[in-house]
Simulated assay, not measured.
Amino acid sequence: MPHFVASDNTALHYYDGGAGRPVVLIAGYGAPADSWALQWAALRAAGHRVVSFDRRWHGRSDRPARGHRIARHGKDLHDLLAHLDLDDVTVVGSSMGASAIWAYVSLFGCERLAGIVTVDQTPKMINSADWPYGFYGLTADNLGTFFLHPTAVNTGHGRAWPDQAATDARIRRAGGQGMSRLITPDTYPLLFDHACQDWRDTVAGITVPALILAGADSQFWPAEHATATAMSSPLARAVVVPGAGHPAHLDQPETVARHLVEFTAATA
């Protein structure tokens, strides 16, 4: 399976298939590149080279003690695009994968990019008077300990989580190797750093089209975050996916694939 070595000597895995204008898919916290398998066929059929990226400590990539910061994950995305010499790229990030994209844009601007798609990731996870679209119950006062509690993700909001066994089976049928999520205490500093970020100014400064997707029934935050985020940039638009929770590309894979294909066609 292909790997490349990032600038800090960390080996990072990716899948690479198809031909045409490139689309790079980046999974969320704990999820592997395989979690995008349900979109691979539609994107390849639409004439795209499809790259699915395992961030450090995710999937089959290395798990070094260093680099548990979203900024480093943005640099890793930069290193991937440079390694594959990809230009005119549509980058697609789900959850924390979206934050890796915003980190890339914050560091490098929209270099090499044709478009940006984020899947159910609010740009600011801490709720405040000017941003009520953060993670349910997360405030500046409880940020330091909030995610140390195992029940933090059980917000009481949104739809039921997809069945793990059924999801794994669908991913395997689509050519992936299952979800094999990996969340351990080693990665908590990354989750904390992720939760501290406010990407609203980054979104406001983008110079390529952006599609902000939200799950209508997200377990983590109100779907209104998408419209509020898109309002900060004339190049962004929001779409709420009906019947989808936080992992919208798993809950409604065909719908998300259609939105990705339509977006890439519109930015060609």
Results as ranks from 00 to 15, higher is better:
residue 5 V to P: 05
residue 6 A to I: 04
residue 6 A to Q: 04
residue 9 N to L: 07
residue 13 H to W: 09
residue 14 Y to I: 02
residue 19 A to L: 06
residue 24 V to L: 00
residue 25 L to G: 01
residue 26 I to T: 04
residue 39 Q to Y: 01
residue 49 R to W: 09
residue 52 S to H: 09
residue 62 D to T: 03
residue 63 R to W: 12
residue 68 H to T: 00
residue 69 R to T: 13
residue 70 I to H: 08
residue 71 A to E: 05
residue 75 K to Q: 14
residue 79 D to R: 13
residue 81 L to N: 05
residue 83 H to W: 15
residue 91 V to H: 01
residue 98 A to T: 02
residue 98 A to M: 03
residue 99 S to T: 08
residue 101 I to A: 02
residue 107 L to R: 13
residue 109 G to D: 14
residue 111 E to F: 10
residue 117 V to F: 06
residue 117 V to E: 07
residue 118 T to W: 08
residue 120 D to I: 05
residue 121 Q to D: 08
residue 122 T to W: 07
residue 123 P to S: 14
residue 129 A to G: 11
residue 130 D to C: 01
residue 132 P to C: 05
residue 139 T to C: 02
residue 147 F to C: 08
residue 148 L to G: 14
residue 149 H to R: 09
residue 153 V to T: 02
residue 155 T to F: 04
residue 163 D to S: 11
residue 163 D to Q: 12
residue 166 A to V: 05
residue 172 R to C: 09
residue 184 T to G: 06
residue 185 P to W: 15
residue 188 Y to S: 02
residue 191 L to V: 12
residue 198 D to I: 00
residue 198 D to H: 00
residue 200 R to Y: 03
residue 200 R to S: 10
residue 201 D to G: 14
residue 203 V to R: 07
residue 206 I to Q: 06
residue 206 I to C: 05
residue 210 A to S: 13
residue 210 A to T: 11
residue 213 L to E: 01
residue 220 F to V: 10
residue 227 T to E: 13
residue 235 L to S: 12
residue 240 V to L: 02
residue 243 G to T: 08
residue 249 H to W: 15
residue 254 E to Q: 14
residue 260 L to V: 00
residue 261 V to K: 02
residue 262 E to Y: 07
residue 263 F to S: 07
residue 267 T to F: 02
